[in-house]
């Protein structure tokens, strides 16, 4: 073989090796705060095409939708693809990514990000990073990063998150090595429980409130998302989980409900069904925005009931999936027991 060819092949192999090692190291260096970050990694750890429902959102999802209960009560396999303060601009990216390995009957979209406007959060990259930094490297990821920002330097840091996280080598441990393929098994399928209980004020009666439009930018995002889901043939259910209401939030939920239903999609506003759900403001919340484990069980049952009544779903699963989910249920039961023992 000519020396030139040999050098070319050698260089190609060397660079390929460098790319593979780079990707593996990048994945391993990603920080995972099991409380609310890195759920995308746990999602990758799910068996392919095993999920019936994927729920997107912020803590308004992972504190509300109790996946073990959804399995126990309705036989629905689900995953909360949610991170703290997730913004609605990442929904399309996450749906696109989740459809690569799953074919869910329903994608549940929590609507709080459409009405909860926080100018600072919009400016901070951290909320985008919480989603993008845990995705596997792909052209789609690059595409969505390019859509997110025009700033070239920022793009570079988002493409290669190791630029951001390499300083965490000091905290590197065995757990990092297991994430070499950017996957781990999320023991609770994205559900995070809080057993603490803090009494909340019973909300006022806002039945007199009429509609108030949401921010134009957010409305565009919503329209784009619906168009995208239609293109991909994905069934979506919009859900507003219960939290502290005020006139503005109620009015914006009304507006959301109208524009979503006009487009032919369902919008389940749990805040309008507090009595049906059976939520007790004295015992079922741990702060004004989140329910605790007791409230979550009630909300989950309500959502589960709604899904089974309104959607025609094939809930048959193979043996290994059933066995895996039964283990999840056992873990949840154990967690509950441990918590009770701790309190006593």
């Amino acid at each position: 073989m000519k020396k030139e060819y040999k050098n070319f092949i050698g260089s190609f192999l060397f660079l390929s090796g460098a790319v593979i090692i780079f990707v593996c190291i990048s994945y391993m260096m990603r920080p995972v705060d099991n409380r609310n970050d890195g759920m995308m990694m746990g999602f990758y750890g799910e068996k392919n095409h095993s999920l019936d429902v994927i729920a997107l959102g912020s803590s308004s999802v992972y504190r509300f939708l109790n996946n073990p209960v959804l399995w126990e009560e309705y036989g629905i396999t689900s995953y909360n693809l949610a991170t703290g303060s997730m913004q609605s601009d990442v929904y399309e990216m996450l749906i696109n990514e989740s459809l690569k390995t799953q074919s869910p009957d329903i994608i549940l979209i929590e609507t709080r990000p459409y009405i909860q406007i926080n100018q600072n959060k919009k400016k901070e990259d951290i909320y985008f990073r919480k989603a993008s930094d845990y995705m596997k490297y792909s052209w789609d990821r690059i595409h969505y990063i390019n859509e997110y920002t025009d700033d070239k330097e920022k793009r570079f840091q988002l493409y290669f998150d190791i630029v951001f996280y390499h300083g965490l080598w000091k905290e590197f441990g065995l757990g990092n090595i297991y994430r070499v393929d950017n996957e781990y098994v999320d023991r609770m399928k994205g559900w995070r429980s809080v057993f603490e209980s803090v009494p909340m004020n019973v909300p006022k009666d806002y039945s007199y409130v009429s509609e108030q439009s949401i921010e134009a930018e957010k409305e565009k995002e919503l329209e784009r998302l619906i168009e995208y889901c239609e293109r991909r043939g994905v069934e979506i259910l919009f859900v507003a989980t219960p939290w502290e209401m005020n006139e503005e939030r109620v009015a914006q939920n009304r507006y959301l409900e109208r524009i979503i239903t006009e487009k032919g999609y369902r919008f389940l506003n749990c805040n309008d069904h507090i009595d049906e759900i059976g939520l007790n403001y004295a015992t079922d919340f741990y702060d004004e925005k989140h329910v605790n484990v007791f409230g979550a069980e009630k909300v989950t049952r309500f959502i589960g009931q709604y899904i089974t009544e309104n959607y025609d779903m094939d809930l048959t699963h193979d043996k290994s999936t059933i066995s895996e989910w039964d283990k999840v249920l056992d873990r949840y039961a154990q967690e509950e027991q441990e918590s009770k023992a701790e309190k006593e």
Binding site: G10, G17, F22, I25, I162, V163, F164, H166, G167
Partner: peptide, 26 residues
């Protein structure tokens, strides 16, 4: 040998990426 050579270069490359002082905020 090739494996040793490449190993050394890979170690150097990834040492710079991991242990180098650079990135946002620096």
């Amino acid at each position: 040998n090739l494996i040793f050579r490449w190993g050394i270069i890979y170690i150097l490359l990834f040492s710079v990426i991991i242990f180098g002082q650079y990135g946002p905020g620096y």
